[in-house]
Design a protein around this nucleic acid. Structure first.
Lengths: 218, 218
DNA sequence: CAGTATTACATAACGGCGATATGTTTTAAG
DNA sequence: CTTAAAACATATCGCCGTTATGTAATACTG
């Protein structure tokens, strides 16, 4: 399928490899294929955005609920970052706006992935019910998690975070800070974040052994 | 100067207006001008990045130190956002990575603007000395402020934040959350953030009356 | 001053891009 | 079988960044 080829090209060679002629060559067809099936490059980019959010959703729904909702929340953050690092160019298309020259996304395209926030909203509600977070707006908390971690991931993908304040260090600090600012106690937050790190390590080891990674890239 | 024309085109018409032919037309010269002066579009983009960070620095150094360092810190956040909203396309070039198709920035280009973080680091140190922040790494705090607010601004510029959780609301919440997670008490943080909002309002009214805005855009 | 080397500029061309128009082949419906 | 629709291939248009080549202006040097 053309979408699969496009996803592979995007992951392996980056945005500049996504051209009608390159796709035609790769699919053994003509440049018209993109237009008959997607109405142009914009339509194909839209499909890529949907695919990107589907992969994100797959990562987020993969975190299991435990009796430590704050650790679950931290794990959601780790899953978000993990997905972005596994599909960096796809993530750039999802949020980069005009990452591909001149291909502006529709308002509907931009808001399409909003459903993935539901995972975070539900988890925030559980944190409220457990008395770990101040009882405030769960959606607002979700938006704060989203924008803060999105910002860190964006800077990381752009190679703006370097030693000694590399992305790993900033991310761990960011996770704890987010839990604290939502109302959790500092030591409790640090403990839950540490627990989430162990759960994440176990997760990637298990799926790494099964070779289940969604995408690899250089 | 070619850089001024480029900055104007970028601000008024967006990234796709930045082409050698368009610049040649606008400057009444040929396409070679970009190559003799900047060695190509990449060089011109680099100059734009430098200009963008210079404007950011101008905004950041414009916030005055008061006896409420947390309010000063919040005002730095507001200044950062204000600069990004005043120069949205320029901000996209600074951090969008490949906002312009295929023009990858050098490692030196990406790290060039790092000096602007110094304003935040100094302010964080003052927050420590005032006993408002937990005495930890000032640079780490600065990085957290940076990535969190950068993430929010990025989502805002990309029109990802819509009512009822619009950018204004998320930003105010983000500011308070950042101060709280750095160690400030919730009510103290909220009070300083509110104070910073008033100072910001006075600021834009004063400079607005003098017509001193750095750039306007549709 | 003359002579020269460097820089700036204009023109034309190359390859690649998204997009369109047109005609042809394949597919599916009646 | 007939025909309407979908998919495809080819050629072309107007962009793009970039390069090569030749020319005019400038600055340096003896």
């Amino acid at each position: 399928m053309l979408v699969d080829i496009a996803a592979r090209l995007l992951a392996e060679e980056g945005p500049q490899a996504l051209s009608t002629r390159r796709l035609a060559t790769e699919a053994d067809s003509s440049t018209m294929a993109v237009y008959t099936h997607f109405g142009g490059m914009s339509g194909l980019v839209r499909e890529m955005v949907h695919e990107g959010f589907a992969r994100l959703q797959r990562h987020l729904t993969h975190v299991r609920q435990t009796d430590d909702p704050v650790a679950d929340m931290a794990l959601l953050g780790r899953a978000y970052r993990h997905n972005a690092l596994a599909n960096p160019h796809l993530y750039a298309v999802m949020f980069g706006g005009s990452s591909l020259a001149g291909f502006s996304l529709t308002e509907e395209d931009r808001q399409h992935g909003r459903y993935t926030l539901g995972n975070v909203v539900k988890c925030a509600t559980r944190c409220f019910e457990a008395g770990r977070f101040r009882a405030e707006d769960a959606e607002l908390v979700a938006h704060q998690m989203w924008s803060a971690i999105h910002g860190l991931v964006t800077l990381e993908l752009g190679d703006y975070l370097i030693a000694p304040y590399d992305a790993d260090r900033c991310f761990e600090a960011q996770l704890t800070a987010l839990m604290v600012s939502s109302g959790d106690a500092l030591d409790a937050a640090a403990s839950s974040v540490a627990l989430s790190r162990e759960r994440m390590r176990d997760e990637v080891e298990a799926s790494g052994a099964a070779g289940e990674e969604p995408a690899a890239e250089g």
